[in-house]
């Protein structure tokens, strides 16, 4: 019998070579990492050349204000992406939070603080439910949060019987609503620092910085990424994986509810049609085509997630 053949992987030259190819500049990696930023820069320059007023500070901040709600939702969902999950219910969580804040102030006649706290708790609770459905109920993430999305879109209509909430609206008992949006609450969406920087932009930036520190610098973020990379290995390394996953969905729900609060503060009414944040309306998509587009987006989202997941499984 012969001795076992030496493993070729023991060759230090081979290992060094593997290291070298990794450190080499990769055009593909560069495009993936910075592509969007480059496109953004090009767009800014083009618009600025075509219309110099575009680059004026006020306009820039208006654009930032317009995207700050969407940005908050996107920030939250990155946490669920880090654990290789997904949260489809963020849009309806934001809508729920918008309705809840309006309800607390206009119909229950309560103050700003309570309205904000109720929204944040509600957002975190929705995330908790999502997490429990996925972790304990073993429902695939997309289906659980899809179910939650429809559930919330329906639920937010029930307290007002499907009507939008506005100052002085008629209640079900025939009397008029006595409450109103407080000035402090409206300021959350409308106040501009130095008469220039909108408060939502500042809130969005602060939230982004906090989340960045949490995900990139704290040990919790490291474990969340590890769960997304190899859940089994992370569990065997001693992490309470189930708890982390539930918390990830809670963060997502919390950020979505902050987005909802800012939206309510800007709109100044509890609008039941603000469901998916009217991004489609802004795109001038006709109302009768919106459900079709939503469905299309959903099908593609599912295709990407499941198609991608199965190709990763080898």
């Amino acid at each position: 019998m012969s001795t076992p053949s030496p493993n070729p992987a023991s060759n230090p030259a081979a290992a060094a070579q593997a290291g070298a190819t990794k450190s080499a500049f990769s055009f593909k990696d560069f495009v993936i990492k910075f592509g969007l930023l480059i496109i953004l820069a090009v767009m800014i320059i083009v618009f600025w050349r075509l219309e110099p007023a575009f680059a004026n500070a006020r306009n820039m901040f208006s654009i930032l204000q317009a995207v700050s709600v969407t940005a908050l939702l996107a920030l939250g969902v990155t946490v669920t992406l880090a654990i290789a999950g997904f949260d489809l219910s963020i849009g309806s969580t934001a809508a729920m939070s918008l309705m809840a804040s309006s309800y607390v102030m206009v119909i229950l006649n309560q103050g700003t603080f309570l309205a904000v706290v109720v929204c944040l708790l509600l957002g975190a609770f929705i995330g908790f439910l999502n997490g429990v459905l996925i972790v304990k109920g073993r429902i695939p993430d997309l289906l659980a949060t899809l179910g939650m999305m429809f559930l919330l879109l329906g639920l937010q209509l029930i307290p007002t019987g499907g009507r939008s909430i506005a100052k002085g609206m008629t209640l079900s008992d025939g009397s008029a609503a006595t409450g109103t949006f407080t000035d402090a609450f409206l300021a959350l969406g409308r106040y501009r620092l130095f008469d220039l920087i909108p408060l939502p932009v500042i809130i969005m930036l602060v939230a982004a910085i906090i989340l960045w520190v949490f995900m990139e610098r704290s040990r919790y973020g490291r474990v969340l990424y590890a769960i997304g990379g190899n859940e089994k290995a992370t569990r065997l390394a001693g992490a309470p994986v189930e708890r982390y996953k539930i918390v990830a969905y809670m963060i997502s729900g919390l950020f979505a509810s902050i987005g909802g609060i800012l939206l309510a503060a800007r709109v100044g009414r509890g609008d039941v049609t603000s469901g998916l944040l009217n991004g489609l309306t802004m795109l001038n998509a006709p109302y009768y085509a919106q459900d079709f587009v939503k469905g299309l987006v959903l099908v593609f989202a599912l295709l990407f997630t499941f198609g991608f997941a199965s190709s990763q499984r080898r």
């Binding site: 040990r219 490291r222 474990v223 990424y225 590890a226 997304g228 990379g229 190899n230 089994k232 290995a233 992370t234 065997l236 390394a237 001693g238 992490a239």
Partner: peptide, 22 residues
């Protein structure tokens, strides 16, 4: 499958169970 996180560096793989200590 049971120990390593493929996306992580040598450093992050090594310290994963003991992050609290660091």
């Amino acid at each position: 499958n049971s120990s390593l996180v493929a996306e992580f560096s040598v450093l992050h793989n090594m310290t994963l169970p003991f992050l609290r200590q660091f």
